Computed example of a mutant assay.
Amino acid sequence: MRLSAALSLTIYLNPHSPRYNRAKESKFLAQNAAIDPVVEETNGQAYMPDPDVSVKNSNGIMDNLRDKYNKKLMQQFDFFAPEIAIRVDK
């Protein structure tokens, strides 16, 4: 089976995962240039809600981001990008 040249995969670390630190040290993720949202936020390339904000409440997330970054005009967009989550037991 051959994959299309247009297919790409981006791996993002989950900073809220209890295995975040282990994932950062993973050889597989290091070799495949996983993106760390904490680093991106530090570099001013990403906005990230505080960990105590429920991801089930999109209005709460947006309110938190507006307050945290002092941005009054923010809009949530959904680009309908496919997402795959893989959970690995210990």
Rank of each mutant, 00 (worst) to 15 (best):
I35R: 13
D50Q: 09
I35W: 02
R66L: 06
R66M: 15
P37A: 11
Y47V: 09
E40P: 00
M62A: 10
A30L: 12
D67F: 01
V38F: 04
K24E: 08
N32H: 11
N43G: 06
S54H: 10
D63A: 15
L65Y: 09
S26Q: 02
Y69Q: 09
K24A: 09
D50M: 01
D50T: 06
E41N: 02
Y69V: 08
I35Q: 09
G60M: 07
L65W: 07
P49D: 11
A34K: 07
N64C: 04
Q45F: 02
V55E: 11
K68C: 07
E41F: 00
P51R: 14
A23F: 09
M62I: 14
V55D: 12
Y47D: 07
G44V: 07
N57L: 06
D50K: 06
L29K: 05
D67Q: 14
V39C: 00
Y69A: 07
N32M: 01
Y20N: 08
K56D: 15
E40Y: 03
R22I: 07
A23D: 15
D52N: 14
D36I: 10
V53F: 02
D52V: 07
K24I: 12
Y47H: 07
S54Y: 06
V39S: 03
A30T: 06
P49E: 10
Y20L: 04
S26P: 01
E41W: 00
R22Q: 13
D67C: 04
D67E: 15
E41L: 02
V53S: 05
L65D: 11
R22T: 05
Q31A: 13
D63H: 10
G44E: 06
E40Q: 11
N59E: 14
A34G: 06
N43Q: 15
S58P: 07
K68P: 05
N21D: 15
V38G: 03
P49I: 08
K27A: 14
D67V: 05
Y69M: 08
S26T: 07
S58L: 03
D52L: 08
N64V: 04
E40A: 13
K56F: 13
M48W: 04
K27E: 14
D36F: 06
N21A: 15
I61L: 10
I61F: 00
I35E: 08
D52P: 01
F28A: 12
V55K: 09
Y20C: 07
M62Y: 01
S58R: 03
E25V: 03
V55A: 14
A23T: 08
V38L: 14
N32Q: 01
E41C: 00
P49Q: 10
D63F: 02
D36T: 13
E40L: 13
